[in-house]
Design a protein around this nucleic acid. Sequence first.
DNA 1: CTTTCTCGGATAGCTAGTATCCGTGTTATG
DNA 2: CATAACACGGATACTAGCTATCCGAGAAAG
Lengths: 162, 162
Amino acid sequence: MRLSDGVEWGVHVCVVLATLPDDAALAAAKLAEYHGVPAAYLAKHLQVLAGAGVLRTVKGARGGYRLARPPADITVLDVVEAIDGEESAFRCSEIRRRGPLAMPAREYTKPCGIHRAFSRADEVWRAELAKTTIADLLIGLLHDVPRTALEKGARWLQESAR
Amino acid sequence: MRLSDGVEWGVHVCVVLATLPDDAALAAAKLAEYHGVPAAYLAKHLQVLAGAGVLRTVKGARGGYRLARPPADITVLDVVEAIDGEESAFRCSEIRRRGPLAMPAREYTKPCGIHRAFSRADEVWRAELAKTTIADLLIGLLHDVPRTALEKGARWLQESAR
DNA sequence: CTTTCTCGGATAGCTAGTATCCGTGTTATG
DNA sequence: CATAACACGGATACTAGCTATCCGAGAAAG
Ligand code: FES
Ligand code: FES
């Protein structure tokens, strides 16, 4: 079981966009350059994030992407569900209906116990991801990253943003 | 992100084996027939579960598989980790080291904030799965399944077990 | 010694994720 | 209005991991 790489990219992009001034946007190509990932592929994920209401697109010349909401209102879970989907990793294939124990379909009213166990696990996983917002990550970054690097990043963004 | 089908099969197999008498074993082919899944493929997963110490193999004629421990000592997490691996679904690809913000490698001592957030989520996911044992699932099954089906299953097992 | 069964590896096939490209339409600017 | 810059959306190739099957070797029971 592996989560798509696009999920990591999406979170990183949101963190970077959170540092921009409110009225600024950043082009998809610049975001790709900043993170060192293929631009064409990142663009796909950006479009999905925009469709999910996490990012907002600014069309036309000098356009780009910006956050659709304040960083404190965007959770990691929002990004995960936009890119990876909302369905649980586990899929009950209703094995219990097959083989010698098979019963008429009307007997299977409620989900099987295994399915319920995995659903609970999926719920707490998502709840934990919902606890962390983009704003939290940004604050954490300010603590972890040395000042010189922060200033270097800020300069780069000022030159690239619109 | 999707969990392997083998995980579901593994849990079902453990539940069925938990109903057997202590000294009995069930052949891989019978387990496959019981669940209506391809025998050759299920055998792969059974071998993995045996290697992980969840199941025990009984070699030679009239052999088969049985649980390695009492049902109450086998959790759903044990099965998941045996078949799907123990690593988290999220993989931090150290994007922060690339692009204009790149810093010398010695600066990256502790995992990034995004990585930590996903690690926490993965932990609670596993902790939740560890709460449910095979014995719990068996008890739940006795409540959910009508008596006639249970008797049918018991008869089938008695004819097939060794 | 023969039967029965697991063991273990070798090998296709399939699906979801990865990655790239290009034509179209929209907006800012001169 | 003409032009340049840029997002949009679909089409397409590649790749890795999961799905599925097969068969010979070896171990235990009778
Ligand atoms: S029947 Fe297999 S998990 Fe629901
Ligand atoms: S650098 Fe991207 S998640 Fe750690």
